[in-house]
């Protein structure tokens, strides 16, 4: 039989460290980390990228990504990234933030960074719950969703409606790329990668601020299996958090 040369078709991205993550079984943070790493590799920006980590489940992202990293205070990653880009506009900066970090304690920082049109990229992972602290209610928690701080289900009469961050930020006049994607199925993962690639390209070209909201599952704190979680995301979250581009720099005049 004729031998053919072996060809590598799948490998760890250079922007990813050879590390075992602390994430729970079924968690989609690992998938999103990998997409960001693949994008950094494909764009050839690893040696000029500085990541900013959040407080939340992905607080230890600096142990998994193979780029320079800062660990921010809770919610302040956009202020950190603003600091980086304002004094070193030649660097590529991204923040990686969860929904408690970005939509609750960090609401002020994200709105103003987006409004100033800071030239960095935000990966916003929305799983509708506080993960690391043990499953408390987030601003993005769905109506009726049970968490440890709304054990009878989120009562929107008392706590307001879930915040649609992508839509909220899109309402700003300043030009930006704001989109929402999901990682609950292989097809959606492919779409997520396209969106993140596009977001980094806008930064590299110094066009605008870019944010990719990624709907993500949290089987542990949702109390569901991975398969049930993907279904719950599809049936409960997506109708409320519709996928797609909310704003692009090409169509920013509203």
């Amino acid at each position: 039989m004729e031998r053919t040369a072996e060809k590598v078709v799948f490998t760890r991205p250079e922007a990813m460290k050879n590390a075992v993550t602390h994430y729970c079984p079924g968690c989609t943070h690992g998938v999103i980390h990998r997409i960001v790493a693949e994008v950094i590799d494909e764009l050839g920006i690893r040696d000029k990228t500085v990541g900013v980590g959040p407080v939340g489940c992905s607080v230890l992202i600096y142990n998994y990504m193979n780029v320079d990293f800062l660990e921010a205070a809770h919610g302040r990653a956009p202020a950190f990234a603003t600091g980086i880009k304002r004094v070193r506009p030649d660097l590529i900066a991204f923040t990686y933030q969860g929904d408690g970090d970005l939509a609750s304690i960090g609401m002020g920082e994200i709105v103003h960074a987006a409004n100033r049109g800071e030239k960095f990229t935000t990966i916003f992972v929305n799983n509708a719950i506080y993960g690391m602290t043990g499953g408390q209610m987030a601003p993005t928690t769905m109506p009726g969703q049970v968490t440890t701080t709304c054990p009878l289900g989120r009562n929107t009469k008392d706590t307001g409606e879930p915040i649609r961050m992508a839509e909220l930020l899109s309402a700003l006049k300043t030009s930006a790329f704001i989109t929402r994607v999901s990682v609950h199925s292989p097809r959606h993962i492919v779409e997520t990668k396209k969106a993140i690639l596009r977001a980094f390209r806008y930064q590299i070209d110094k066009v605008c601020y870019s944010l990719v909201e990624v709907l993500s599952i949290c089987p542990t704190n949702w109390g569901l299996t991975t398969k049930e979680s993907a279904k719950w995301l599809e049936e409960t979250m997506i109708p409320y958090y519709p996928l797609g581009d909310k704003k692009t720099p090409e169509h920013s005049q509203r």
Binding site: A79, F80, T82, I84, R86, E109
Partner: peptide, 17 residues
């Protein structure tokens, strides 16, 4: 910046470079 809270954290990001 939008607040002293943000400015302090911008200082962190800038100083880190």
């Amino acid at each position: 910046g939008e607040s002293e809270l943000a400015v302090g954290n911008m200082i962190f990001g800038a100083a880190a470079t």
